[in-house]
Write a protein that binds this DNA or RNA. Structure first.
Lengths: 190, 190
DNA sequence: CACCGGGGAGAACGATCGTTCTCGCACCCG
DNA sequence: CGGGTGCGAGAACGATCGTTCTCCCCGGTG
C-alpha cells in the first residue's frame, strides 16, 4: 500500500523534471533525488525508464483532459463551449512553468526511438481531437470542423512554446475558431 | 577549399540522421560513418556537436523556405498563393522520409537545454510567419490573418508527424485557411 | 633524399547514464 | 531473543558518447 504513495511521488518528480527539462536530460538518479524514492523502489515500480515515461504521460493525459473538461463545463452554450477551449489554452500558456505540450515535446524527443511513447502521444492527441469532435457535434456543426479546430489548438501549443508569448497564440486561435464556427453556420454567443 | 565539400558532406549526413532519428540518438561517430568525413575534420569544421546541429538547422531553413517560395511563385493570384502554401505542405507530408517539422522536433529535444538551438528554431518560425504575413498583405488581407494561417500550418505539421496520415492535415488546414480568407473578405479563385 | 605539416583511422579518455549489486540496518514472526 | 526479510544508500558495472590524442602515411618543398 505504501508503494502507492511512492509511485505517486515518483510520478510527481518525473512530471516536474521531464516536463521542465526534457526526458533525455533527466536521469533516474535525478528522479530519485527529487522524489525521495530509492532507486531500488523506482525500478520495482517501473522496470525501465521508458515505462516511467509512459506512466508520466498517461497520468498527465487524464489530468490535462480533465482540467480542460472542467473549464469547458462552466459554459452552457455549445458554441461558447468551443471557444472556451481556447480560453483555457490561454490560461495554460500563462502558467509560469509552461513549456509547451508535453506530448509534442516527447514525440520530438523519443517518437523516432520509442514506439511506446509514440503510441501514448497518438492516443492523447486522438482523445483531444475526439473531445473537440464532441463539442462540435453538440453545437450542430459538421465533423470536419473539429479537425480544423484541432489544428488551431495544436498550432497554438507549439507556437506558445517556441515563442514564449504567453496567451497570445491562444487568442489568435480563438479568433480563427470563432470565424470558422460562424462560417459553418454556428451561433456564437458573446 | 576541399573542406567546403567535406562540410557539405557532413551536413548531408547530419541532416539525414538528425532528421530521421532525432539528434540525441545520433552520435558524432554515426555522422563520421555516414559522411566519410573523419572525426578530426568534423571537429575542425564544427568544434562541438551543438554547432553542427545549428548549422544543419540553418542550412535546412534556407532550403525549406526556398522550396516553399518556389512552389508558391507558381501561382499568380494572391489569394491562391496563400492556399498554395497548404498544397505544398501536403506534398511535403507525403514524402516517404517525412518525420515532422525539424525545428519543432529539435525544440522538443533540445529547446530546454540549448539556447542556440532554441534561438535557431525561433528564427525559422519567425521567418515562416513573416513569409505568410507578406502573402496576406499582398492579398490585401489584414495582418492578424497571417497569425491564424501560421497556427494552421504549425498544427498541420505536428499532426502530420504524430499521426502518419500523409497530406490530410494539410488539406484540412487548407480548407480552414480558405474559409478564413473568405471571411476576411479576400477573393479566392478556385 | 630528408624533412615537415596536415590529415585519416581509430584508440583513448572522461563523463554520464540506465541498471544492478552489495551491504547494513530495522522490523516482524516464532 | 534470534533469524530472516525487505528496504534504503550508494557503489559498481557496462554501455554510450562527446571530445581529444596517438600514430602513421603521404605529398610537397629545399
Amino acid at each position: 500500500m505504501d508503494s502507492m504513495v511512492a509511485r505517486e511521488q515518483a510520478l510527481d518528480a518525473a512530471e516536474r523534471l521531464f516536463y521542465g527539462r526534457g526526458i533525455q536530460s533527466v536521469g533516474m538518479d535525478d528522479i530519485r533525488g527529487a522524489s525521495g524514492v530509492s532507486l531500488k523502489r523506482l525500478y520495482q515500480l517501473f522496470p525501465a525508464k521508458e515505462q516511467l515515461v509512459v506512466a508520466y504521460l498517461e497520468r498527465r493525459d487524464v489530468r490535462w483532459r480533465q482540467r480542460l473538461a472542467e473549464h469547458v463545463e462552466g459554459h452552457e452554450d455549445p458554441g461558447r463551449r468551443i471557444l472556451a477551449v481556447y480560453d483555457w489554452l490561454g490560461q495554460w500558456f500563462r502558467e509560469p512553468d509552461f513549456r509547451g505540450c508535453a506530448w509534442i515535446n516527447s514525440y520530438g524527443e523519443l517518437g523516432a526511438t520509442s514506439e511506446r511513447v509514440a503510441a501514448q502521444v497518438r492516443s492523447h492527441k486522438r482523445a483531444f481531437k475526439g473531445y473537440l469532435s464532441g463539442l462540435a457535434s453538440d453545437a450542430g456543426l459538421p465533423a470536419g470542423l473539429a479537425d480544423q479546430l484541432f489544428l488551431l489548438a495544436e498550432g497554438a501549443m507549439v507556437t506558445a512554446a517556441i515563442e514564449q508569448s504567453g496567451a497570445e497564440p491562444a487568442v489568435q486561435a480563438g479568433l480563427a475558431a470563432r470565424m470558422l464556427v460562424k462560417g459553418y453556420g454556428g451561433a456564437v454567443g458573446h
